[in-house]
Design a protein around this nucleic acid. Sequence first.
DNA 1: ATAAATACCTTGACAGGCGATGTATATCCG
DNA 2: CGGATATACATCGCCTGTCAAGGTATTTAT
Lengths: 110, 110
Amino acid sequence: MSIAADLIRGHTDAVILSVLMRRDSYGYDINKTILLSSGGAYELKEATLYTAFKRLEDAGAVSSYWGDENTGARRKYYTITDKGKEMYRQLYSDWENAKCIIDSLMYKEK
Amino acid sequence: MSIAADLIRGHTDAVILSVLMRRDSYGYDINKTILLSSGGAYELKEATLYTAFKRLEDAGAVSSYWGDENTGARRKYYTITDKGKEMYRQLYSDWENAKCIIDSLMYKEK
DNA sequence: ATAAATACCTTGACAGGCGATGTATATCCG
DNA sequence: CGGATATACATCGCCTGTCAAGGTATTTAT
């Protein structure tokens, strides 16, 4: 079961930053990482991913550099900045908060 | 602490239907109910609310009728249909599912 | 050779949230 | 009485984020 597009929307930045909290990585790999660790349920489309990188870089949350592969296609790596780490912590706490609120609003049939 | 717009987006329909699972209600009251039961954290803007009613009615999830108040402003009541109840159950299960997936994607600092 | 996987990126359409604005009624307070 | 505030509906147009479609280039497997 996969996640609806409008649910994706609220979490794209957090999920990308979450990968970068662990290690530097590049677009294609970040995408595959998210897809794999969600068991195929959470998939960012490429256009969404690159839009997000642009947004995050403009916001100063990540910075990028080209990898120096002597083999394979060129890779653009991203690093999370201090500002990005701060942003991630905020987004994570927003998520914890939203979980409670939404849960409390959802009618439970018995 | 309030919920970000892009988080709202993914849950508007579910939250409205959730109120209507309990009882028939009208726009202004649904809005106040959500605002109150979230302790002011989850607020649907009026434009968002009425857009959602239109969407839900077009989808056959709710139906509406005018209240017969002899006093106060006129109220348009909404009832959830069987289709709407089914939709709500789906949205609720989507939410339960999304919670797990997103949680599993979020980096936890220790 | 050809297909598939890796890897990047842009454009334009579309959907949903929401600020601004408008209507009308009722109530509260001085 | 008159102005402010609350109740209650609704629409228009902007903005933002997703994503289908399309494009380029390299490497690996068949």
